[in-house]
Amino acid sequence: MESRVLKPVLAVYVVLFILFLYGPFFVLGILSFQQGPEGGPQFPIIEWSTYWYRHIFGLTPPSRVAPLPLGESLFRSLTLAFMTMVTSTVLGVMSAQAFRKKFTGSGLVFYLIVLGMMVPGVLTGLGTSLLANNILGIERHWWSTAFVTHVVYTFPFAFLVMLAILNRFDGSVEEAAWSLGVSPWKTFRKVTFPLIFPGVLSAMLFAFTLSYDEFSRTLFASGRDQTLPLAIYGTFSVEIHPNVFAFGVLTTVFSFALLSVYAILMSLSVRRAKKIAMQEDIV
């Protein structure tokens, strides 16, 4: 009885909640079309324009607003995310594969891995910087120290994804392959891997996006050359202009493009499975 009253109330509440989550984005999106270069990062919109988008790509005449230092940092971020993705996924698949058998110390190793996603970036960032700076005496770079902390952060995600996938994996197809005289390594390549591939894809997506957007670890561990989040952070301290908003819209679009590619790949494999299931019904 109460739920008849409560449910619509909660429904309205959830709409407000979603508004709370998305509100800032809409405002950001609107302001990214502010007139330039005089228009500031606030209302009212003087005149709708795509000035700040052209500004990002250097298509506007030079003005008092310096262009965002994006080109190189974008390249570094993508490269770093790619390196991290490959390493984390390989480590994740290997570790999850090991966890299919019980072994002594498995509980300890599990917590050791999962700790990587729990410890805040300031701590891993600081610790790795100390290690590089004061113990090893090496310079910090985005491709060395920052890369290492990124893997510490993303490997647990890849590991957990693969663990969930392999938990549901029926090992008898592997035993079948061994009984046919096929070595365990070849069995992994020819049977296990193709079957867990959707999971691997998810693990890769996780690792890539987490690394691409990673900020606090990178701030400490990356040294002189900036990645994309660092370049954005750099604009915080000085006056912000709508070009940062325009850039925010663009990165969001990029993330969604990535997500769409993933969604298409996944739905293709799901549809193939469905088609097979349907043919099974016919037979």
Binding site: F215, F236, T251, T252
Partner: peptide
């Protein structure tokens, strides 16, 4: 799926 920093920054306007 959007940058953490952009999400923070979006509160300014």
């Amino acid at each position: 799926w959007t940058s953490f920093l952009i999400r923070v920054l979006a509160w300014r306007p």
